[in-house]
Design a protein around this nucleic acid. Structure first.
Lengths: 233, 233
DNA sequence: CCTACCGATCGGTAGG
DNA sequence: CCTACCGATCGGTAGG
């Protein structure tokens, strides 16, 4: 909850990882201790370790421990440690882009759209803090060409913010200031959420997202025109 | 310059590291290739590597390469790899706190003080992006008890933001919203700067700092009362 | 400041 | 899914 603790990567449990579209072959359904989705289980364990102690610091043996098997046994379900990272990071960026796209497709004026992609950005970083944290921190742990691929996705994601800020400024909805700096500021404050957000706290990701969307809009100098739509995407 | 590149940790040269108060014994003065400040040279090399490829990924041999000696020879000037990280991180946090303290001691109303500590925050993260980047990213690479010590310093640094936001809200200078979230947002957008700022670009750290100080103040809902003092601390 | 080298760790493979 | 193990890396020490 403090800045210091934030940088630790969070210490509560990882949620999600059910909508990871990976696992194209294996059967779905975790919950009971049934044999099924070993691949998904392994990825979840890896994600939690990557997020809390880092990719390089995580050993195959530790990942195995989390699901009750030995390190070498992981290779029956996974090709390599690197491949796990690739799957996690690619899945994360694709999901983020998907949600951003949906937020934009919902239409509305510039200000509404900016609020919406900001809310989506923040909400994801709170709900999927481990994925987001790893996705942001471990890019350089990726080998080429995957690293460049992910970097391209990030650039695309980021450019949507910049374009919207620019559009708003050109239509005098937002005040003047560097579009790039403003969009970076919005992106970075959202990314920061993944480092300190506490899922067992009293506020939900959606409330946080709505507040940050307001921060963004105010930062850009767009006054409180209408009663400020509070929905959080 | 793009979000993607940001996460690489920057690719230009490291500045500074002359004011690192360390090196309490060895003679000062670098510049010519004279024997003198080996310790400082080593720390500079280590910092650049820690920032670009990470602490764990950096080998003693690589650090040696940068100054033209072998890995084992480093131990004549430094006790361990870990000690180098401690020196870098402690020096960074102490400098940041020193500057923040000075910004607060300069007085003024809440809004002025918040602008000033935000500007100082951002300016440092631009000017000393490597120190700041490492200081933020490698906290968990520190062994105890140093890790906890640094974490305490961070908490202190951060609490000054929160206190100021709170003070402004209580005096109705800032609008209502979570003090903690708002201060985190300001802190995080500043930290982000250390990941993407390009020192060879056309804008200086002070201009960026002034812009971000305005972002912060607008985000908090403090209108443009007076002509908005633009000095950047 | 160097070479030689130790001790430990770790990703991944062999071969059941 | 396991044990045994290889090959490579790396921080740090010995001993000049």
């Amino acid at each position: 909850m403090t800045l210091g603790e934030r940088s630790t990567g969070g210490r509560t449990h990882v949620p999600s990882a059910a909508e990871r579209q990976a696992d194209p072959a294996a059967p779905k359904g975790r919950s009971s201790g049934r044999p099924s989705d070993r691949h998904g289980e392994i990825l979840d364990a890896a994600l939690e370790l990557f997020a809390t102690i880092g990719y390089r610091a995580t050993t195959m043996s530790q990942i195995g421990d989390r699901i009750g098997i030995r390190g070498p046994s992981l290779y029956k379900h996974v090709h390599s440690k690197q491949e796990m990272l690739v799957e996690i990071m690619a899945g994360m960026m694709e999901e983020l882009l998907r949600r951003q796209r949906a937020a934009l497709d919902a239409g509305g004026d510039v200000r509404e759209r900016l609020e919406r992609i900001t809310a989506v950005h923040v909400q994801y970083h709170a709900e999927h803090r481990y994925e987001a944290f790893v996705g942001h921190r471990e890019i350089d742990s990726l080998e080429e060409p995957e690293r460049s691929r992910i970097l391209d996705l990030r650039r695309e994601y980021e450019s949507r913010f910049r374009e919207l800020v620019q559009e708003g400024r050109e239509h005098d909805v937002f005040g003047a200031s560097s579009d790039r700096w403003a969009s970076y500021a919005i992106l970075d404050m959202g990314i920061g959420v993944s480092a300190w957000y506490n899922p067992s706290g009293s506020v939900g990701p959606d409330e946080l997202a709505a507040t940050y969307a307001e921060f963004a809009v105010r930062m850009l100098g767009a006054g409180e025109a209408e009663p400020a739509p509070r929905r959080s995407a």
